[in-house]
């Protein structure tokens, strides 16, 4: 696999503040890497260094084999970048803005026209092409930024919160767009929407206070959850809680009310068989039995705050989204 983005020991200080602290990773063609992390974690700062906007305090970045400090123009030519907040020239129309971006990227007349046409279609900008950007709604501004990032069909895409401010249809569309482009590009996106990680990312980094605290595929990250392989069961049976707690591999049982229980395994254990077998043997009337893959939001919270959050009594299923 071709390593398109290589980051080594990257650090950036702002005065006494260490915004990014010794971050290393690489992204290959075909990968979509997700940056997760609380506000101020250093996601955008890292992206600004990869795209050559900010000089790192320490460390090295290479894009498509070009060192961003020494071969800046070649590296930048390989990148499509959507900066945080999708800044643009407000007094321009999307049409003239995209034409400017295409020229600045050195596209010829025909290539520019084709690239702009394709990008406009992909983010559905047709309706507002001649309206000054400053008068566009937030979501349309974001789409203009996205179109600008993809119009030259770059091998590397860096998108800072690409779906922020988009309506649900557009979110869906942009995720599909990213998935569609993923095959032959190396892509980094940052997001605060955890379900997006499972939907588009092949790998994710959780960043907190400038450091990488977790790195893995969405499945691997979910598996780090206390809920990984936990079983939720709803039965109408006397003494079920005590019986479940006594099963091999069970660490703890939490009553959810109305005959529902959350059964947590000890680390690494799989208790599905044990729980299902016991229920069958006892002749319990099982109304529901669900095995969880894990909860990314719980992993995220634990990794970024150090909080252990499996409470004594859990909210009823379906309410925990809050």
């Amino acid at each position: 696999m071709e390593r398109m983005i290589e980051v080594e020991g990257l650090a950036r200080h702002f005065g006494p503040l260490v915004a990014v602290d010794d971050v290393s990773f690489s992204v290959s063609r075909g990968e979509v890497l997700g940056f997760l992390g609380p506000n101020g974690a250093g996601k955008s700062t890292t992206m600004k260094m990869i795209t050559g906007f900010l000089a790192p305090t320490r460390g090295r970045v290479a894009v498509a084999g070009n060192d961003i400090a020494r071969k800046a123009l070649a590296a930048k030519a390989a990148i499509g970048y959507l900066p945080e907040g999708a800044p643009a020239y407000g007094d321009m129309t999307p049409a003239s803005f995209l034409a400017f971006a295409a020229r600045a990227r050195g596209l010829g007349r025909a290539a520019a026209r084709a690239g702009i046409e394709r990008a406009v279609e992909q983010v559905e900008l047709q309706a507002v092409l001649e309206q000054p950007i400053e008068t566009l709604s937030k979501g349309y501004k974001r789409r203009v930024g996205l179109a600008q990032a993809i119009l030259h069909d770059p091998p590397v895409l860096i998108l800072d919160e690409p779906t922020d401010g988009l309506d649900p249809n557009q979110k869906h569309q942009v995720r599909n767009l990213i998935l569609g482009m993923a095959r032959d590009k190396a892509i980094i996106i940052s997001t605060h929407i955890l379900e997006e990680v499972g939907a588009v990312c092949s790998r994710a980094l959780i960043i907190a206070q400038g450091r990488i605290v977790a790195d893995g595929t969405p499945r691997e990250l979910e598996a780090m959850s206390r809920y990984h392989n936990a079983v939720q069961i709803r039965v109408a049976a006397e003494g079920a809680e005590a019986a479940l707690a006594g099963l091999p591999g069970v660490e703890r049982v939490v009553a959810l009310g109305e005959g529902a229980y959350q059964v947590f395994p000890t680390a690494g254990a799989s208790i599905t068989e044990a729980v299902a077998g016991h229920a069958r043997a006892q002749g319990w009337e099982v109304e529901q039995l669900v095995v969880e893959a894990g909860r990314l939001d719980e992993v995220f919270r634990r990794m970024t705050t150090g909080e252990q959050d499996v409470p004594e009594s859990l909210p009823a299923p379906g309410e925990e989204a809050a």
């Binding site: 050559g52 800046a72 123009l73 070649a74 930048k76 907040g85 800044p87 020239y89 600045a104």
Partner: peptide, 14 residues
């Protein structure tokens, strides 16, 4: 102020 400098300086323009 508008942040467009980030766009301008990440284009392949010296």
């Amino acid at each position: 102020k508008s942040g467009s400098i980030e766009l301008l300086l990440t284009l392949p323009i010296s």
